[in-house]
Design a protein around this nucleic acid. Structure first.
Length: 905
RNA sequence: GGGCGAUUAGCUCAGUGGUUAGAGCGCUCGCUUCACACGCGAGAGGUCCAAGGUUCAAGUCCUUGAUCGCCCACCA
């Protein structure tokens, strides 16, 4: 049966077809009862309403490579997919959408709004999962999870209640980061500090009962409307006499005291600071220490509040201008200095955050952090790469309490009820009937929801059915590995470790692999909103998912961030095409094999054809077959080692060069004539070996290029009932097939062929002209190797004959290439380009001379001889001898040429 | 203010103290060779950022500096 496949690889329909089939057949469904060691991994859940970006693609590529590799190695694998409800982001999207329809979400009311978000989730929540399906990720879709599902919400409530009962969750009034755009508190981690060019306004505050004034400096003049004191350093001689006096707050005409506090920096500004307890963290602390009132002069959306008097209703920045103008008019503005300072912005929307005193829920972190620090110190969780450990420890040791409440509607509502009578709080797993304290039934649930990362922190065990003791939990928890970008080490990884230890008594994962971040050409983080992102879906369609995966894997070297370039993707698309065409060659020959009538193709599907390779003829395995299986075994071992250490780029490099370099460039070219040989047993053996090597190569490549390899694997003869290459075995490293002798001999033959091609190219010999060549072998082994592969040498070097001859060759009559093992000579009539050859030889000699000199110098050094390991010294001696011999040969040749050209000139 | 990373071929990047520092792209030359021009063959191209130091031996380890980038940090 002739196999008709297109000349060029077209990934589009092939990928779609397989992606669909893998999902439909539930090929990657995990089975707790399956044999083998466990390899389990949960996805870092993407935002449910988001779409796939290049960062996910990297995450997912690494996870999928590892999962497929381990599955093929016989592990019981689980790759659990799912999504995050992403509180703020999702709410923002829906709010904006409603606004576009002229609807203010607040007018809708909480329940109706929540319903709208669920609706939106239903509509667009499929985007990311369908994109993942398109990518053909080998995850178990029957176990897909969502952070806001009833099951996972139950885990969230359980955790909240237990933390509250343990005194680790408290409600308190503190300064938090307030985002006026999202209208909610956000955590410290969710703020991004940006250097901004601003001003430092120096304002005179008149001292009551005198003509004096004190000058304060501020970057946010509008907050003065909420000032309730001025603070100076207790030992600041400039101001000591003022401590205890009152100043009249300009514009507001409120009398406020001058207090002393150690936190004031005498060096900064004027050394006197206005104190606004409601709008600054330091001032808040000063306020606590001095019992100052708090005056919140802003509203949720950062407009000035009624407390701001005449400025009420103004936007904070408009108010700033007005306040400054009014102060100036009143003659109270002493000066305006330029000042660069870090401004906190919301990492979701970029709005400048407003520090604001507010009542929120917090988690006490120190008691959770301590065991999590110990677990990493002990190595129960291995954080990789190593250098991230220090960051983790640094952050964990200085951890601050975590503000977990958000003034949003989309999320897990806090399971706490406020009593209308006694004002006490009842925290409960289920809606309580009455106040736990006074029995009142006038209960209202706390309006806040938990921040998204609270539920994400439980992900490794909430997805396994916790708090129930499920088979999944027992089998797959703790998970084997977490793969994620390093930028969410604090947001997510650290919190998972803390929560995992607290609630399961176990670490949530044994290893964490933190990969790089993908950046664009300008080195910025890829961001869709900034228009700097690469759309992976578009790229996948354009170049093929396999090519994209391979590109990402090949660039995923630890340490540096990845800058993706189209050129690089193109080169791996070419690689995919190369594999495709190697397959075409194999298929073409499969047909010949069958029509030749020896054995049927089905015979090739027999397990022993694969496992017994390399196949022998008359008890003899051909050199090239020994070689390719040796190379395959070596490549497999290298890939295993690389993947065990998350060295994806190294693994990719190995398979690339094994396939393209060893298999295509040499093996296929070498065996071509054997396949059609009249010697039937020999042809059949070559056949089986070609088939087995190619088939193994496909399996080796599968974790990296799943679609292409699946497609081709199915076109090869396979045993009855074979469903997918993904369920087949990964190649074994087969240490016994590593054949140093065969590799050495093949290298020799390759060197001869390359030398001949080099001479021909330099001579600009007609491609079709086969020239006779002569060779001098340095040993009988070399000679017998050459004799053994003579036909191949003649064919691949494009020479008509190769005769063994005695040295020296007449370099004026042809060109010579030499190594330690041989000298190859090809004569030609057109005449040698003597000046060119002289130049080449001189350059070569110069290089050799330098090399020889440095080696001699080192070998003469007695300290080197006495201290360096013996194999280094011996190796150096051997190499030096070779170089010297080479140098002698080349000098002789050069002299001959110079003499000749001198004679002829 | 602390901390981390990078600097290697024209470009993008690998490189595990040891014998001639590699890859892909690009470049030059030659090829419609019956798997592949997304290809084949042959080449050119590198004071490994700088200066010191450790070592028998440094692209690799240490120190300092330069340039670029990132993270953390409540000086108004």
């Amino acid at each position: 049966m002739p196999r008709e496949i297109p000349k060029a690889y077209e990934p589009q329909q092939i990928e779609q077809r397989w992606a669909k089939r893998w999902a439909e057949e539930k090929l990657f469904r995990a089975d707790v009862n399956a044999p083998g060691p466990v390899f389990s991994i949960v996805i870092p859940p993407p935002n449910v309403t988001g779409s796939l970006h290049i960062g996910h693609m990297l995450d997912h590529t690494e996870i999928d490579i590892l999962t497929r590799w381990r599955r093929m190695q016989g592990y019981n694998t689980l790759y659990l997919p799912g999504t995050d409800h992403a509180g703020i982001s999702t709410q923002r999207v829906v709010v904006r959408q409603l606004a576009a329809q002229g609807i203010n979400y607040r007018d809708l009311g909480r329940e109706a709004f929540e319903a709208k978000v669920w609706e939106w989730k239903k509509e667009s929540g499929g985007t990311i999962t369908s994109q993942m399906l398109q990518l053909g990720e080998s995850c178990d879709w029957t176990r897909e999870r969502f952070t806001l599902s009833p099951e996972l919400s139950r885990a969230v409530t359980e955790v909240f209640v237990r933390l509250y009962e343990d005194g680790l969750i408290y409600r308190g009034h503190y300064i938090v980061n307030w985002c006026p755009q999202c209208r909610t508190a956000i955590s410290d981690l969710e703020t991004v500090h940006e250097e901004r060019q601003g001003h430092l306004w120096h304002i005179r505050y008149p001292i009551v009962g005198t003509n004096e004034h004190v000058v304060v400096a501020t970057t946010r003049p509008e907050t003065m409307l909420g000032d309730t004191a001025v603070a100076v350093h207790p030992s600041d001689v400039r101001y000591q006499h003022l401590i205890g006096k009152m100043v009249l707050l300009p514009l507001v005409n409120r009398e406020i005291p001058i207090v002393d506090d150690f936190v004031v920096d005498r060096e900064f500004g004027t050394g006197a600071v206005k104190v606004t307890p409601s709008h600054d963290p330091n001032d808040f602390e000063i306020g606590r220490r001095h019992n100052l009132p708090e005056i919140d002069v802003m509203t949720d959306d950062a407009k000035m509040s009624a407390a701001a008097g005449p400025y009420a209703g103004l936007d904070r920045f408009e108010a700033r201008k007005r306040v400054v103008a009014d102060l100036e008019a009143a003659g109270l503005l002493e000066k305006i200095a330029d000042h660069t300072h870090a401004v906190g912005t919301c990492d979701r929307c970029g709005t400048i955050i407003e520090p604001r005193a507010s009542t929120q829920w917090f988690v006490k972190m120190k008691p959770l952090a301590e065991p999590a620090i110990a677990a990493v110190e002990r190595g129960d969780v291995e954080l990789l790469p190593d250098n991230r450990r220090a960051e983790y420890f640094e952050w964990m040791r200085n951890i601050r309490d975590w503000c977990i409440s958000r003034q949003l509607w989309w999320g897990h509502r806090i399971p706490a009820w406020h009593c209308g009578d006694c004002k006490k709080i009842t925290v409960s797993r289920k809606t309580p009937a009455s106040c736990a304290k006074c029995g009142s039934v006038k209960l209202t649930q706390d309006p806040d929801v938990l921040e998204t990362w609270f539920s994400s922190a439980l992900w490794p065990f909430s997805t396994m059915g916790w708090p129930d003791d499920t088979p999944d939990y027992r089998k797959y928890y703790p998970t084997t590995l977490l793969v994620t970008a390093y930028d969410i080490l604090f947001f997510w990884v650290a919190r998972m470790i803390m929560m995992g230890l607290k609630f399961t008594g176990q670490v949530p994962f044994r290893q964490v692999w933190m990969h790089s971040i993908v950046r664009n050409a300008e080195g910025q983080k890829m961001s869709k909103s900034k228009g700097t992102g690469i759309d992976p879906v578009e790229f996948n369609e354009k170049f093929g998912t396999d090519a994209m995966r391979f590109t990402l894997a090949s660039m995923a070297a630890p340490g540096t961030d990845i800058v993706l370039s189209e050129e690089r993707i193109l080169s791996y698309r070419a690689f995919a095409n190369k594999i495709w065409n190697a397959a075409r060659f194999v298929f073409m020959n499969l047909d010949k094999y069958e029509t030749a009538g020896g054995e049927t193709l089905e015979a090739l599907a027999a397990p022993e054809v694969r496992s017994a390779a390399p196949h022998a003829v008359n008890g003899q395995v051909a050199l090239v077959d020994r070689w390719i299986f040796s190379r395959l075994a070596r490549a497999t071992a290298q890939v295993n080692d690389a993947l065990e250490h998350f060295r994806f780029h190294e693994a990719a490099h190995v398979v690339y060069h094994f396939f393209w370099g060893d298999f295509c460039d040499w093996y296929i070219e070498w065996v071509k004539p054997e396949l059609t040989s009249a010697d039937r047993p020999k042809a059949a053996a070559t056949w089986k070996n070609l088939f087995a090597a190619f088939e193994s190569a496909l399996r080796l490549l599968h974790p990296f290029m799943p679609f292409l390899t699946e497609e081709l694997w199915h076109q090869l003869p396979q045993p009855e009932g074979a469903r997918s290459i993904a369920l087949d075995r990964f190649p074994e490293p087969h240490a016994e097939r590593i054949d140093a002798a065969a590799e050495e001999q093949i290298v020799l033959v390759q060197e001869i062929i390359t030398a001949a091609r080099n001479i021909r190219a330099e001579m600009k010999a007609d491609q079709k002209a086969k020239l006779p060549a002569q060779i001098a072998a340095a040993s009988t082994q070399v000679q017998s190797t050459i004799e053994g592969s003579l036909d191949t040498i003649l064919r691949l070097a494009n020479i008509s004959s190769l005769s063994f001859a005695a040295l020296p060759f007449d370099s004026t009559k042809g060109n010579i290439r030499s190594t330690k093992d041989f000298e190859l000579f090809i004569a030609f009539e057109a005449g040698l380009d003597i000046p060119a050859e002289v130049a080449r030889l001189r350059k070569e000699l110069e290089r050799l001379a330098k090399d020889i000199a440095s080696k001699q110098q080192r070998l003469e050094d007695q300290t080197f001889r006495s201290r360096a390991p013996e194999h280094i010294v011996q190796g150096l001696e051997t190499t030096l001898a070779e170089r010297q011999a080479e140098f002698a040969k080349l000098s002789e040749r050069l002299a001959q040429l110079e003499k000749n050209s001198g004679a002829s000139a």
